[in-house]
Design a protein around this nucleic acid. Structure first.
Lengths: 234, 234
DNA sequence: GTAAAATTAGACTCCATTGTCTAAATCGTC
DNA sequence: GACGATTTAGACAATGGAGTCTAATTTTAC
């Protein structure tokens, strides 16, 4: 059996674009089938059919079903983490327009990290296969959601330092922010349904309003401390 | 094939305690195995072994694997719903000691409905098999989580009517309360881990504090509107 | 105690799937 | 256009699980 080429080598020359395309096609198809059927229920033949590739090609690239599964999970995790930090980079820097900026951030968080394909895949697979592959998912937990809390916590601390928020425990506030973002979509998320843009917008707005009611800094004494309530439309 | 007896008939005489015990034993074992392995991964032989029953006995009670699966899911749903409404009945009636009472309620909600065996089972199975049995899980969604929001919303409305809370949208507040309760346990919940009593307590306290910061009624003008912050320990 | 019903172990068939192998076809490079 | 590498379709063996059947045993009802 010859050595498998590393991704770097694989991308080096344009010579193997075809091979690389097959690989990606297999990964995508496998993600789809594993997500729908679970590990046990997924058949290599079905993956091959979805990928428009012969079964043998799959075995050329991945020694066995489990190898393929691990590769798929790692692939999705990498994509999901990259997306997570891309979304995190859009967290509001300053406090002008905080409500709107936070709402936009919440929409992107839900839309691109939690309610998307990859989020659905990871939730499903972590739950069903987590116990069978502890270190695989444990590493995701540390690198994905774990770092999300840490990073979000730091971003909230920055806003609090700038007097835009009043927060006693940044980690708790970070987790609560994420939880509130999902509050209205929990059931859809659980059932794997995709919310409409309107639903995303409304959920984010509800979340941010409540978050700011709890953690928003009281406006600098010219108005009452709940002035933002009076500013609500309707 | 003879008619299957209804549960009522089954319990009527003491004559069939043995048969009934087998049935329950099969349901429990099947819940365990389906939860660990999913529908496709679960083998009837393993269920029989766990239930200490022969394979044929399972087929005497349930025509085929799918029949057994549906029965298990319905059984767990019924238990979970009963527990849910039992916990709901402990929702605080009046506003003396609201923070502590709500915290106790939040602990019970997490401990007995969300982080327990049945909660884990339902989350897992809804996600993995939900698309294959739409009406089965749809009915649970309406009768379980759906009614939870409705009921909790009404309970919050009662407190708001008694001036203990200030809430604009009761449904949103209900969903947010549940979301906040899980905020600190989300990852453990996802990974199917069971939180300690201490973790449950802390998570509930964090949730209720934030909920009351957002929705607590401002104390009747003797102190500033954020007086409860000053009342925090530390 | 006896008869009917339920349970058991195990053999059995059937079928889907995994993973291997091979010979032909296709692709990319020179 | 030729050559090597890759892909393909399909046959193939081996495995495991679903569901049936039977004959013996146990439990329950009366």
């Amino acid at each position: 059996m010859k050595d498998r080429m590393t991704p770097a080598v694989r991308m080096a020359g344009h010579s193997q674009r075809g091979q690389c395309a097959k690989r990606l096609s297999i990964l995508d198809a496998a993600a789809d089938v594993f997500c729908r059927q679970g590990f046990a229920g997924a058949s290599i033949d079905e993956i091959a059919a979805v990928a428009c590739v012969s079964r043998q090609t799959i075995y050329n690239h991945y020694r066995e079903k489990e190898t393929l599964f691990v590769a798929v999970v790692e692939d999705v995790m990498n994509r999901a983490n990259a997306m997570l930090f891309s979304v995190l980079s859009g967290f509001p820097e300053n406090a002008d327009n905080l409500e709107d900026d936070l709402t936009g951030f919440a929409v992107r968080l839900n839309k691109n990290c939690i309610c998307n394909h990859d989020g659905k895949f990871l939730r499903k697979l972590v739950q069903t296969e987590g116990e069978r592959y502890p270190h695989l998912f444990e590493s995701w937990r540390r690198q994905g959601p774990g770092k999300l809390t840490t990073a979000l916590s730091a971003l909230l601390a920055r806003l609090a330092h700038g007097r835009a928020l009043v927060i006693d425990d940044f980690d708790v506030a970070a987790r609560q922010f994420v939880a509130l973002c999902n509050a209205d979509l929990q059931m859809m998320t659980l059932f794997g349904e995709t919310p409409s843009d309107e639903q995303l917008e409304k959920a984010a707005r509800n979340a941010v309003r409540t978050f700011l009611k709890a953690y928003g800094a009281p406006p600098a004494d010219k108005a009452g401390p709940r002035a933002h309530l009076a500013a609500l439309p309707g």
